[in-house]
Amino acid sequence: MSVDLATVRRIAHLARISVSADEAPHLQNELNAILGFVEELNSVDVEGVEPMTSVLPMRMKKRADEITDGDIVEKVLANAPAREDGFFVVPKVIE
């Protein structure tokens, strides 16, 4: 499988990364090189093989329902590029 320029743009938008017009063809070539590299996987017989979900057999531990966190507004907002009255501030979002 290989990707065309339109796909490169669609993927870039899905990933929210702007790609300039002269950058796109390079990216297309690189992506196709990688996709070409992984293409050999199609030759592997995976009939009836379970996909790996956890690399080691472990059971997921669960937490008790207790309030152990929060009330750290300063820590939450400490690195915010823009903040106001305890909120993160972003350019207006139109729904």
Partner: peptide, 25 residues
């Protein structure tokens, strides 16, 4: 970009799911 592509609609099974099966092998 590659990661987004291999997870995107229509490609998940061919790439990601297959790769995870190969991991099992």
């Amino acid at each position: 970009m590659i990661g987004t592509y291999v997870l995107s609609a229509g490609y998940y099974d061919a790439y990601y799911l297959r790769a995870q099966k190969i991991r099992t092998l």
